[in-house]
Simulated scan of single mutants.
Amino acid sequence: MTSVVGTAGEKRILVAALEEQRQAVLWKLEDLDDERLRQPLVPSGTSLLGIAKHLASVENGWFGRTFGRANEEVPDESLAEDPHAEWRIHPWETTAGVLAYYARARAASDAVVADLKLTDRGTDRHGAAVSLRWVLVHMVQETARHAGHADVLRELLDGRTGERPAS
């Protein structure tokens, strides 16, 4: 984040922090073929493309469902049948399709953030009231956590490390 953002208002700082983590995740997916993006490298079956799918579903849920907006979250019924549904990349899902899903989720989330104040409240999936501020902080944490996972997976694939391209 630049120094201008570092002295901006709270909402702008939170949005910039989330976007920085989103870009770190996307950078980890760059320059890899479909096979490598789908390749699970840890016993849980996590893949780089699975991380993007999970983050898209989570953004849809926290920004869309919580604030009563239309969203493309992986349905609860799918998760009841397969708890890893939002992580699993099915043979019929394309890399372009998953990346488009993540792009739509980010755009929809950004629209919610633009429409609301940090103090506006929504209801989480368990019925608890949460503010937009809380959701933004939570999504910065969630995305950063998975950016770290992506960093490890990418290093295992081809040795690339770091949080962004070298300047």
Rank of each mutant, 00 (worst) to 15 (best):
T2V: 10
T2D: 06
T2P: 05
T2C: 05
S3Y: 12
S3A: 15
V5S: 07
V5M: 04
V5N: 03
A8S: 12
I13G: 03
L14E: 00
A17M: 14
L18E: 03
E19V: 11
E20A: 14
Q21S: 14
Q21V: 11
R22E: 03
A24R: 15
A24E: 08
V25N: 10
L26K: 11
L26T: 09
L26W: 05
W27I: 07
K28L: 03
L29N: 10
E30N: 11
L32T: 10
D33C: 14
D34R: 09
L37D: 01
L37M: 06
R38Y: 06
Q39D: 09
L41Q: 08
L41Y: 04
V42H: 08
P43Q: 04
G45N: 04
T46G: 03
I51H: 02
H54Y: 12
L55K: 06
L55Q: 12
A56G: 06
S57G: 13
E59M: 11
N60V: 09
G61W: 01
R65S: 02
R69V: 07
R69K: 14
A70C: 01
E73D: 12
E73V: 12
E73W: 12
E73Q: 15
D76E: 08
S78P: 00
L79S: 04
A80H: 11
E81A: 15
D82H: 07
D82F: 07
D82K: 07
H84L: 14
E86F: 09
W87N: 08
I89P: 09
H90G: 00
H90K: 05
P91E: 12
W92C: 05
E93L: 11
T94D: 05
T94F: 10
T94G: 14
T95F: 02
A96P: 01
A96T: 06
V98Y: 00
L99D: 00
L99G: 03
A100P: 01
R104F: 07
A105Y: 08
R106E: 02
R106C: 11
A107R: 09
A108E: 14
A108D: 15
D110C: 06
D110P: 06
D110M: 08
A111V: 02
V112E: 00
V112Q: 01
D115T: 12
D115I: 03
D115F: 04
L116K: 03
L116T: 05
K117M: 13
T119I: 05
G122S: 02
G122V: 00
G122Y: 00
T123H: 07
T123F: 04
R125E: 07
G127I: 13
G127C: 09
A128T: 15
A128K: 13
A129K: 12
S131G: 03
L132P: 01
L132A: 04
W134M: 07
W134K: 03
V135F: 01
V135I: 15
L136W: 00
V137H: 04
H138L: 08
Q141S: 12
E142F: 02
E142S: 07
T143Q: 10
T143K: 13
T143E: 05
R145C: 04
R145L: 11
H146A: 07
G148A: 13
G148N: 11
H149P: 09
A150V: 06
D151K: 11
L153I: 13
R154K: 08
E155Y: 03
E155K: 10
L156Q: 15
L156R: 15
L156F: 09
D158T: 14
D158Q: 10
G159L: 13
T161H: 08
G162H: 15
G162C: 14
E163F: 13
E163V: 11
R164E: 11
A166K: 10
S167G: 11
